[in-house]
Design a protein around this nucleic acid. Structure first.
Lengths: 220, 220
DNA sequence: TTCAAAATTTCAATCGATTGATTTAATCGG
DNA sequence: CCGATTAAATCAATCGATTGAAATTTTGAA
């Protein structure tokens, strides 16, 4: 329950049966929850697709709902260490204070570019982010896990950067909304992908399409 | 199947039993699908909450999936006639051609303001838009209905307006993405409301909060 | 080091409950 | 009275979860 989250990527030489099973269940659930949704995914589908027995879910995680939480903890932990969130940890608040508006703007652009970049998340990047996006739209215990561990810090850093641009306090309502809107611009294209594909005439949102999106993002 | 969509708002004096039952089922399903999601909503919940019998769903719509589609058709029809989509129908393409950048910018702002305004959709506005948003995130037959009847036209108008600003062709990829991003800025706050509430420290997204969002929207 | 006992993990089978949908009979309005 | 509609009962299928036994791994005394 309160133990270390399951690693989304097992080190190649792992022999531990338990670890392998738990990883398979979490990764499979990550994919199915992200694509079909939590409610539309049955425990049997997860078990079959991960090569485990149905009872394994109850045994290792207690319940389907707990598996969902474990997936969220794994995702949050992984993003915190390797993903876009990690990038914001490199700057400290005092350094931002001294930034010129032009420097801040540049860092914001870089920040957004990293947020769009999926390479840092590994081969599961698409699955991780799809799960992330889906869960963000629903009120559930999972939101708190993702927000506290992967969003809060990143948003605050963005607020401090935006503050250098608009001159307002970093924790003012205006600044906070502006910071959210910067993330929103690139995030929304994944959130409403079905509509985006139809509007744009695309058949997927790949690296090329993401460049187009990034070019259109407004950071002024 | 190919008949007129169910009216979301019955005229007060309606006596027609059939019409009343169908309306109750559609409105109830609209609310439940929007809040709990399609998969997490059972036909019994819909029947109970709407005061109808379980068999009524099969009788009137054929299946739960067909009820979902009927809800989408009703929502699309209602938005097309009364909602934000309607606003874009007032301008024609030739008029937009002659707009100065400054005029276009003003119309875009107005367009967005209308898209944020929920009064035109009536008392069910929140339910309608929540259903709308949820369905936009999932690949389903419903997306096509909503896109074709409520989004396509509105997006094209926005493209033509944006075209007056950036000087590019209205159907260029750059313009189309930019137009999407304008909608995205205000839409995303409803899509990821759970995260927005936590980030902003809000307990709801009401008219006041929407004003704050609108002020932060970038149209340059 | 050896090997049986103990603990852990997996397995097939099954639990009661609920799902979407259907059937049959009663009820309603015209 | 008749067709339209509803109500109650029930369908097979699937849901999440549990069971006890089998298989596997770990442990500990000799």
């Amino acid at each position: 329950m309160t133990s270390k989250p399951v690693d989304l990527y097992l080190q190649p030489g792992t022999q531990d049966r338990t670890q392998i099973t738990r990883n398979a269940l979490v990764v499979t659930a990550l994919k199915l929850f992200g694509t079909k949704g939590f409610d539309a995914t049955s425990t049997r589908q997860i078990a079959d697709a991960s090569g485990a027995n149905i009872a394994a879910i109850s045994y290792h995680f207690g319940s389907k709902e707990n598996l969902r939480i474990e997936v969220a903890r794994s995702v949050a932990a992984h993003m915190g260490q390797h993903g876009p969130v990690r990038a914001s940890a490199d700057m400290d608040n005092e350094a931002i204070q001294g930034l010129s508006p032009e420097q801040a703007r540049s860092m914001i652009r870089q920040h957004i570019k990293i947020a769009l970049d999926r390479d840092s998340l590994g081969p599961l990047a698409d699955d991780i982010l799809q799960f992330f996006h889906v869960e963000m739209t629903q009120e559930s215990p999972v939101v708190d896990i993702l927000f506290d561990n992967a969003l809060k810090h990143s948003h605050e850093r963005m607020c401090r950067l935006v503050s250098r641009l608009n001159g307002e306090a970093w924790d003012s309502e205006k600044t906070k909304v502006a910071a959210l809107m910067i993330f929103a611009q690139v995030m929304v294209f994944d959130l409403v992908r079905p509509v985006v594909l139809r509007s744009m005439g695309w058949d997927k949102i790949g690296p090329q399409e993401r460049d187009t999106i990034l070019d259109a993002a407004w950071i002024n």
